[in-house]
Computed example of a mutant assay.
Amino acid sequence: MRISEFCGLTLKDIDLENRIINIDHQLQRVGIKIHIETTKTNAGTRKIPMTEEVYRCQTSLPMSAATPAAAIWQDQV
């Protein structure tokens, strides 16, 4: 997974039930602005299996689909 794809992940991209990570967009910086864009090529759009270690890490996080990640991060600072 490319760093831009990793940085662009959202909770909806993580399928814990099937242990799949959906890659169909990426975070891109253009100057000082940050954009979410589609992957650079069609081959970049893919579903990758989640390893057991990633699954354990993901299920230990105090997040839910109803809680924005930014709100959780701000609580930790």
Rank of each mutant, 00 (worst) to 15 (best):
M1D: 03
P68L: 01
R2G: 11
H25Y: 07
D24N: 14
C57D: 04
K12Q: 15
L27S: 07
E53P: 09
T38V: 12
I48N: 06
R29P: 01
Q76N: 11
I48V: 08
E53R: 02
N18W: 03
L27R: 05
Q58M: 14
E52K: 06
T45E: 15
N42V: 13
G44Q: 00
P68H: 03
M63H: 06
I3D: 09
A71S: 02
N42M: 12
T41I: 11
L9H: 10
A69G: 06
D15G: 05
Y55W: 14
K47G: 11
S60K: 01
L61S: 11
R19D: 13
T38Q: 08
I72V: 00
P68F: 00
K33R: 13
M50E: 01
Q28Y: 03
D24M: 09
H25E: 09
V77I: 07
P68D: 01
A66R: 08
D13Q: 04
L61R: 15
K33Y: 14
I3E: 12
T39I: 03
I21T: 08
D13A: 04
I23M: 02
D15T: 03
I34E: 14
S64H: 15
N42K: 15
I48W: 05
I34C: 14
T45Q: 11
I20M: 04
C7D: 05
R56K: 07
I21W: 11
N22E: 09
Q26Y: 01
I3M: 14
T39M: 00
I32H: 10
L61W: 14
V77R: 10
M1F: 07
P68C: 00
S60D: 01
T51W: 10
K12L: 15
P49M: 10
A71C: 00
L9C: 09
D75W: 10
K47R: 15
T38F: 12
Y55N: 13
H35E: 12
W73M: 02
S64K: 11
T59Y: 00
D75N: 07
E52Y: 10
I3L: 15
A69C: 04
G44F: 00
E17S: 14
Q76C: 10
V54Q: 08
T39F: 00
T38A: 11
I20H: 02
H25D: 05
Q28L: 03
Q76L: 12
T51R: 07
K33D: 13
Q74C: 05
G31Y: 12
K12E: 13
L61T: 09
R29S: 06
P62C: 13
D13Y: 02
T41Y: 08
Q26G: 01
E52P: 10
E37L: 12
E5K: 11
I48K: 04
K40V: 02
L16I: 00
M1T: 11
P49K: 05
A65Q: 08
L9S: 04
V30T: 04
R46S: 04
R19T: 06
W73Q: 06
V30A: 05
F6K: 06
G8A: 03
R29M: 04
V30I: 06
P68W: 05
I72K: 00
A66Y: 01
P62N: 14
T67R: 05
E37V: 13
T38M: 10
I34K: 14
T45H: 15
W73S: 02
E5H: 10
S60E: 02
R56S: 07
K47S: 09
D15L: 06
R2F: 04
I14D: 03
R2H: 05
T41Q: 12
